[in-house]
Every structure is written in structure tokens, then in C-alpha cells.
């Protein structure tokens, strides 16, 4: 009884693809997140903070628009005094340049933090990745696993952050301007703010993992196996 490598089907059989179904990829990424729960919480927490800030700023504008809608010219003056950039004619309130900068910077700091955390996570898992490759995993699969993990982290972090920010914006609006500010607030605009924050956070998380994931995927198994010695 002898086993042959390329067998009767010859080299053509080689073309049969190596696969990793989506359900299985999801399961594996979810499990590795759960195993390193504390670790991933730290990565996620920086995202939560940045996204909640973005969401807070955006929803505060919606609240201010609510104030404007409820009180007319008098309310516009109060908003201007409070430091908002009000376009009275259009009935909208915009971010001040300073706010824009702070939001941008907070996102940037968060992105750098994510890249850092994910690079560490890749280094920690060098051997695991190498073993998977020895077992036949393709570069694309390793990439996919990391992207899926980042997407899950991103989604959870952004959702939490966006809701947190929106909640705080509503609370401060209610305290500062009273119930009318919330009652007259454009609901679609508010929903849009939350959606933008979630989307932004997700993009940030994916962008942050891209480089570390490519590093992981390109690694040759021999180096990964050696890394432990």
C-alpha cells in the first residue's frame, strides 16, 4: 500500500481550491476574540472613546438645531452665545473649525492606537498563523480572519460609542436648553449622526487592522515556526 502525492488525478487535481467557509471564519475570529477578551476590550475602548466623542459632537448639533426650531431668533442668539456656529436663515448649526480639528485629532490618535494594538496581536500570534499556513491556509484566509475580528471589534465599539455619545449630547441639551430642544430636534438628522459615527468607527477599525493583517498574511510559514525559538 503506497500513497502517492499527485496520485492518478495528476497535477490537475491540485487546482481544487482550499476553502474556509464564512461561517467557519466567523466562528474562528469570534473565538479568538473571546479568548483574548480583556486584550480586545482595551483595543475597543479607545475606539469607543473616539466614536462617542464624534457622536457627541454630531448629535449636539442636532440638539442645537432643535433649539433653533423651537425658539426662532431668540434661540439663535442663545446658541451664538453658547459658542455654536449658527446659520439662522438655513436653520442649521455647523461645527466650528476648532471642533472639527479636535474630532479629527481624536480619530487620528485612535487609529494609531488600533494599528499599535493590532500589530502586537499579530506578533503574539506569529506561531498560530504559521501553523495555520503549514496546514494549508492561504494568505487570503489569514487576512480575512484578521479583518473579521477587526470588523466585529469595530462594530461593537462603534455602536457602544455612538449610543453613548448621543445619549450624553441629549442629556446635556436637555439640561442646558430644556425639553423643547429635544422635542423639536430633527429625528432623521439625529439618526444620521449616530449612523455616521458607527460607520466612521467601523472604517477606522478596519483601516487600523489593514497593515497588521497584511503583515500577518504575507508571513512565510517557515519564519513563523522559527519565531518561537
Amino acid at each position: 500500500m503506497e500513497k502517492r502525492v499527485f496520485g492518478p488525478e495528476g497535477k490537475g487535481g491540485v487546482r481544487r481550491a482550499i476553502v474556509l467557509p464564512w461561517s467557519k471564519s466567523l466562528e474562528i475570529s469570534f473565538k479568538s476574540l473571546r479568548v483574548r477578551f480583556f486584550r480586545s476590550m482595551i483595543t475597543v475602548s479607545s475606539l469607543v472613546l473616539a466614536v462617542s466623542f464624534l457622536s457627541f459632537v454630531l448629535s449636539s448639533l442636532n440638539v442645537a438645531e432643535g433649539v433653533l426650531a423651537s425658539g426662532g431668533a431668540d434661540a439663535a442668539k442663545r446658541l451664538l452665545d453658547a459658542g455654536y456656529d449658527v446659520q439662522v436663515d438655513a436653520g442649521t448649526v455647523a461645527m466650528t473649525p476648532k471642533e472639527r480639528w479636535i474630532v479629527f485629532l481624536s480619530m487620528l490618535v485612535c487609529a494609531v492606537g488600533i494599528v499599535n494594538a493590532q500589530l502586537m496581536s499579530v506578533t503574539e500570534r506569529f506561531r498560530e498563523i504559521g501553523v495555520m499556513k503549514c496546514l494549508g491556509a492561504l494568505d487570503a484566509m489569514v487576512l480575512r480572519l484578521f479583518l473579521l475580528e477587526a470588523a466585529m471589534q469595530g462594530l461593537a465599539g462603534s455602536l457602544a460609542g455612538a449610543l453613548l455619545g448621543a445619549l450624553f449630547a441629549s442629556l446635556t441639551g436637555w439640561i442646558r436648553f430644556g425639553w423643547d430642544a429635544l422635542a423639536f430636534m430633527p429625528a432623521s438628522g439625529f439618526a444620521l449622526s449616530v449612523a455616521i459615527s458607527v460607520g466612521g468607527g467601523l472604517m477606522l477599525s478596519l483601516a487600523g487592522v489593514l497593515y497588521p493583517a497584511v503583515v500577518a498574511a504575507r508571513m512565510r510559514p517557515i519564519n513563523a515556526i522559527r519565531a518561537e525559538h
Binding site: 499527485f6 487546482r15 501553523v131 494549508g136 491556509a137 492561504l138 515556526i225
Partner: peptide
């Protein structure tokens, strides 16, 4: 792809340090 296929189906690896996931 062919290398991955070879590693997956035709060669089994055993290491000194076990290397289980």
C-alpha cells in the same frame, strides 16, 4: 495555491514544540 494544497492534503507536519493552536 498549489503549495497550500500540498501542505493541506499531501503533507502532514509534526513539530518538536507540538505547535497546536
Amino acid at each position: 495555491y498549489e503549495l497550500a494544497w500540498l501542505r493541506n492534503r499531501k503533507i502532514g507536519y509534526i513539530f518538536q514544540t507540538f505547535n497546536l493552536i
